[in-house]
Design a protein around this nucleic acid. Structure first.
Lengths: 156, 156
DNA sequence: ATAAAATGTTTTGTGCGCCTAACTTTAGCT
DNA sequence: AGCTAAAGTTAGGCGCACAAAACATTTTAT
């Protein structure tokens, strides 16, 4: 029914989510600022999001997320964070780059892959291995395990 | 100078690359087929790629990659494969899904992250761990290490 | 060799996402 | 209140990527 959100609209939704994090309402100006677009583009996007019931919005009024919008936004954020964290914590990529790439890839991330990336990042902190370490950005060093018996870490 | 290729043009280039893998020349029909677009779209794309010196193309003629085009196409393929392999071999995601997601994400993949994903996938085959195994799609099992002699490890 | 089929191209139009310029509304003074 | 600055919107336009329909060329099969 509801056609999937475009990457662009997902970006707007995510931005609004961040801006309204503490119960605040978002100004179009700030959305434009964050996404590096001009004000008119924001107006159009807000209309589209409003039409899908994702944001509460009326002309000249500020914006908040609807329940539905919040759910959607959280999902987008989850995808974003799963990627970003994986890049930073597991692949040990520079923050800036991780953020930029996550930002573009998040739109394509499937639930299954998101879950596994997250799980994987968690493993890297808990595995008896102590986590593999990159050497000099060029190779992999797999240190000897610190634990003797594998730990059962079953968390869900 | 040369503005980066759009995702769309990257897709066309990649398709041509695959179709001309064995020295063959590509027919527009097949490109359209592979990318699930109509013939007119292919014509337009070929013009754009030709204008950038990436393909050898003249109206009503078949297509081959130029040296420059081959280089670019290989780069795209590398990104695609890095993602696909990582998804399949490390995250143990289903082939079809891995392919689909890789297809969309490949356009955003940075060189550094590509290298690390590749490195990582390699590790999963070589690490003394023998590679972690997913259990039931829900969790991670980190099997007991096979290595005996403790190696010097400096942990952060 | 030639007609039919396949392939390729042009024309025209759509949707999306963004822009600038100009206009309207709201908010913040004093 | 009244005026200005800031924020928001409308109008008009552009580029990209795609499509359907109609036209052109090449291939093929007889």
């Amino acid at each position: 029914m509801a056609p999937a959100l475009s990457s662009s609209l997902e970006d707007y939704l995510e931005a609004i989510h961040l801006l309204t994090a503490h119960g605040a309402s978002a100004r179009g100006r700030d959305i434009a600022e964050r996404l590096q677009v001009r004000r008119p583009s924001v107006t159009l996007a807000l209309r589209a999001l409003s039409a899908r019931g994702l944001v509460n919005y009326a002309p000249y009024d500020r914006v908040t997320l609807t329940a539905k919008g919040r759910t959607a936004a959280r999902d987008i954020s989850r995808r974003h964070e799963a990627l970003r964290r994986f890049f930073v914590k597991v692949l040990e990529v520079e923050e800036r780059e991780a953020e930029q790439v996550a930002c573009k890839m998040e739109h394509a991330l499937s639930p299954a892959i998101r879950r596994r990336l997250t799980e994987f990042a968690r493993l890297m902190k808990r595995c008896p291995l102590g986590g593999p370490r990159w050497i000099n950005g060029g190779g992999f060093h797999c240190p000897a395990p610190a634990a003797r018996r594998p730990r059962r870490t079953s968390r869900k």
